[in-house]
Every structure is written in structure tokens, then in C-alpha cells.
Design a binder for these strands. Structure first.
Lengths: 170, 170
DNA sequence: CAACCCTTTTGATCTGGATCAAAAAATCAC
DNA sequence: GTGATTTTTTGATCCAGATCAAAAGGGTTG
């Protein structure tokens, strides 16, 4: 199965700032990140709002667009020069159909993501801006220093100014 | 497979206010609601914070506790008298092992839940208390009037007083 | 290396929603 | 039904963080 999967992956590199997926289109592939940093964001009143970030050894795509094969609101771009291995949705469906362990892997991964979402929802209610930022630093402990301030503030739902002041004190 | 599933379900009824699952314990069964309304909540500084609500024709459990068979922070209780069909985790695992379509169903359901979570996270950032409430009314359009105000306010992360004032105007 | 552009910081003011307090209304138990 | 408890509403005050404005850094491009 490893072999069947490896044969279907396509390697490619995106330059810093390059658009990996456009919200106008259907997301037909999922990317495994070998090196680099990807941001998932959407537009609200003309401004870019970060939804989350993915780095080395993680899969990234536009979730609802990829799962349901219809356009959704999310754009993906490369925060740094990024090398990925892309897997087409057709190939993934082939693997699901022929290798039950692949479907199990997907179900379990989804369960993990589900848990992370619950935690994030909890951390966004009843917390001060500072607590939100500290939680972000824990969640992204290994990569938080590689993400620009403006992208973090929109991820947290606070303004750049507030985040800058939080960082200043202590 | 329908038959195999039906044979493993246990019917039972919880009175209004009854505890369905205790956070101290491991959640060993998942409940399909035939009639009634269930709240998933946790305690923060002695107060009950609603995480979400489930009603007729939905499955409910303590997600991370059920998936990983270890205790988690969530309690479940019946907001109204509630009739459910319970499925034990052992039985579910048996069904996953013997019926691939069951595993597929679980993966797809999880994907749907994933989408709902993304939407909720979006609706919690950059929105006023009023917008949060309106979003809640859409999300729970068929059951929002069956849920007490205090439980809604903690779900939204606003105070009871603010929610009461929002409802008052218009 | 200078001119430009983008990101981050600093300052001043304003406001939505929290907090504290208490009255009014609804629900429950006996 | 009637008193007790819980839930919801109303009122007054306060503050964390938003908004508006502008200065100060940092990068990158010819």
C-alpha cells in the first residue's frame, strides 16, 4: 500500500508568497508538506483572515472543497518557500476503495483533528487576548516564530495593535 | 448490516435533567436520540459551559472520551425527557471490523462535523454578540427555542444579561 | 545604497459587552 | 394553590480591546 501511495504522489515546490489553492476553484489535491509553511485563509471585507497553519509532515488542503469537490471560501498560500507531495482526490478515492487501512487512517486522523477543533473553540470563549495568544504559542510551539504578526492576529480574532502590545509587555 | 446494528442497540430513557454521561468516567457508548434534547457541557470555575446540543436523529457522546477510551472534561445531560438507543464501543468496533461501509459512514459523518466546526470557529471571531446569537439560531433553527437562555449564553461565550438584552431589542 | 513598500510599534480615544446589583417572572415541590 | 427556588430581565458602572492616526523598523529591488 505504501508503494501504491508513493507512486501517486507528485512532488512540487511553491515560492514564498505563491498561491497554492484558489478559493474560486475546486480543490482536487491534498498536499503533504516536506519542507515549508502553508497558511489557510479566507477573505472578509477585503482582508485576509488566517484559519490555520500547516508545516512539515502535515497534510493540507481546503477541507470542505476537497471532501465535497465543490468550491469553498479558503485560499492556501506559502508563507515560506515550500516543497510538497501532492495527491489527487481520484487517487485517494482509489486507495480508499482498495485499501481499508487507508480509510481507517483517514477516519482516525479526522478524529484527531476533531479534538483539536474542540480545544480551539474552548480556547476562544471566555479568554482574554493574552490567553488566546499563549494558547496559540502552545498549539504551534515549533513554528509560531515563523509566522508574521498580522497573520497571527487574524487567526486569533484580535487586532494587530493589540497583539503587538501583548508581545511588548514581558 | 442494518440487522447487525439494530441487534446491538439498547433502548433507554432519561428524565429531564438526568446525567447521561459523567466526565469522571470513560464514555463507553454512543447514543442515537429518538426523542428529546441533550446538552454536552463542561465545568469552568464551577460554572457549566455548554459545548453543543444534540436532538432527534443525531448521535451523541463525549467525543474524545469515546474515541480514545479515556476520561475527558465533558458531561452529557438531558434538557428534556429523552429516549435514546445506545451502542457500545465494543459493538461499534466489531461493526467497523466486519463492515467497511460502517467505517466509511463514520469517516463521512466526521467530515460533516469537521465542516460545522470550521463554520463555528469563523462565526466566533470578528462577530458581535448579536451576530453570534443570530448564527446560533440558524445553526439550531429547529430546536433553539427549546434551550434555556443560560445554556445558550455559555455556548456563545457571552453573559446571560447580554443575551437577554439582545433578545429584548427587536 | 537609496527609494519604496510592507510590517510592527506606539499613542490617544472610544465603545461593546462584562460585572455587580436587584427586581420581576417563570417553574417547581409539596 | 402557595411558598420556594430558579430563570430572566432591567439598571448602573467599568474596562479590555477596538479604532483611528502616525511614527519607526525591516526587506527587497533596481
Amino acid at each position: 500500500m505504501q508503494r501504491e501511495l508513493a507512486d501517486r504522489l507528485t512532488l512540487c515546490t511553491f515560492k514564498k508568497g505563491a498561491l497554492i489553492h484558489d478559493a474560486e476553484k475546486v480543490c482536487t489535491r491534498s498536499y503533504f508538506i516536506h519542507q515549508g509553511l502553508v497558511r489557510v485563509y479566507f477573505l472578509k471585507e477585503g482582508k485576509e483572515i488566517s484559519e490555520y497553519f500547516c508545516a512539515e509532515q502535515e497534510w493540507v488542503n481546503s477541507p470542505r472543497s476537497f471532501m465535497q469537490q465543490r468550491p469553498d471560501i479558503y485560499y492556501l498560500d506559502a508563507i515560506e518557500e515550500t516543497q510538497v507531495a501532492g495527491l489527487d482526490v481520484q487517487d485517494l478515492l482509489f486507495l480508499f476503495g482498495n485499501f481499508p487501512e487507508m480509510e481507517r487512517y483517514a477516519r482516525l486522523s479526522m478524529g484527531t483533528a476533531y479534538g483539536h477543533f474542540m480545544e480551539r473553540i474552548t480556547s476562544m470563549r471566555f479568554t482574554t487576548a493574552r490567553e488566546k495568544y499563549l494558547h496559540f504559542c502552545e498549539t504551534y510551539s515549533d513554528i509560531h516564530h515563523r509566522i508574521p504578526l498580522g497573520m497571527i492576529s487574524s487567526y486569533l480574532g484580535i487586532t494587530q495593535e493589540t497583539l503587538s502590545r501583548i508581545r511588548a509587555q514581558k
